[in-house]
Design a binder for these strands. Structure first.
Lengths: 225, 225
DNA sequence: ATGAATATGTCGGTTAGTTTACAATTATAA
DNA sequence: TTATAATTGTAAACTAACCGACATATTCAT
């Protein structure tokens, strides 16, 4: 890949904003690059060498499988998000894979060890990165709390609001979301069965709180939700 | 507090092992110190200035309260553990407090901003710290998975095993744990009702898999559990 | 265009775990 | 020591959500 391109690939990630051009040049350690289409599975947790991945385009879900074969959706990632060995510690216990939710997914990657070297050289970047990991930790903590103390309906509504806020197109209190998830996906995200998710979505639609289709979700008034 | 003492306070935390004496001297930024006894509540999330705390002695639980007043136990901490603004980002949303589970709890603290300065100066420490936060994130991720896919009984057994491994006195496959938790605590940790926890603990005891008392828990054979 | 595959809709039966309620036991403080 | 508070034990009614089963609708590949 051209050096210039590599530069811009990292440049537009928040984490690297504080770095100068030359610093990023050092970071031009991208060693992998791949594309995928909807439904494609991208294994990464058992890759030969630990890596960090950057999702350049499209949406993917990170799914983890435990010993008994239970699949949990850990995260839904969008353009610009990082995944892989973010904790900078090889982890052979977890078994995760990514699945493309949209077409034209593109992902680049660099080696965890290269990234570590870079962090050692750039304390400011190291600090930003720590905060970034800390934020991710907080999100998991929060998901956990929701699961403990909120029922499925509340979790669905919380999820829809978050989704709208992150990716929806806003017009006053109205949000239009480009829906790349199936109801099964949504069910897994909010940790309920597909049937319950279907039921709840239809219930929200009946009350005219949302409009649901396979392509779009429209929230008429977030405040009413 | 004497400088020397401050030094040793930090010195025996894993995170600071890699630092030299002089580096730690710089870190001697401990500005707070307090003691507590069983049952005492220590508020920290809304302290005037964001801090990081180090539990020097005793055991505490970190409890968070949401808008509706639901209390969730986020963590049980033991000697040597850090808590507070670990994500290095002030967070006014979460409302957490610590509660002493044992007598003779002692806690020291330093300012988040001082710690940040130190990380900037010590890239190696920054990297260790990032890994430390990453590890914490993984633990939350793991808790979450357990909650999603395992029933209360499995969660209890997993918890007991973890606890035994971390703090129990081992003799072959037998573990003796100093029990500073009530059944209500255990219930909250594994996210179930107190009654269910009681039921399950008694069930395990009837099957002679554990011996339970308010002071001690003995696991006769971890492999059978 | 057509059949196969995937996604959504709907319905009871089942169940793990909650909730309420109260009794018994153990710890704590006066 | 004794009263009071906290913890543990137990049971029945209740419920949110799961699960299996099947129908319908939509998408995709050939």
């Amino acid at each position: 890949m051209y050096e210039e391109l590599k530069y811009w690939y990292l440049r537009d990630h928040k984490l690297f904003w504080t770095l100068s051009m030359s610093q990023i040049k050092q970071l031009c350690i991208i060693v992998g690059f791949r594309k995928a289409n909807k439904g494609d599975v991208i294994y990464f947790s058992h890759s030969e060498v630990p890596r960090i991945f950057l999702l350049k385009q499209g949406n993917i879900k990170i799914v983890s499988i435990d010993e008994e074969g239970n699949e949990t959706i850990k995260e839904i990632l969008k353009k610009g998000d990082l995944f892989g060995e973010l904790a900078l510690e090889r982890d052979t216990d977890v078994n995760e894979y990514a699945k493309a939710l949209t077409d034209e997914v593109s992902i680049c990657s660099f080696l965890m060890s290269d990234f570590e070297d870079l962090l050692i050289k750039n304390p400011t970047l190291a600090l930003s990165y720590t905060k970034f990991v800390g934020l991710k930790m907080k999100r998991f903590k929060n998901n956990y709390s929701n699961l403990v103390s909120k029922d499925a309906k509340t979790r669905l509504i919380t999820f829809l609001k978050d989704w709208a806020e992150k990716e929806g197109i806003q017009e006053g209190n109205k949000y239009t979301i480009d829906n790349y998830l199936t109801q099964t996906d949504i069910a897994q995200i909010i940790c309920t069965s597909r049937q319950t998710a279907t039921l709840l979505l239809n219930e929200l639609e009946e009350k005219n709180l949302i409009f649901y289709s396979r392509k779009k979700i429209i929230i008429d008034d977030v405040k009413k939700l």
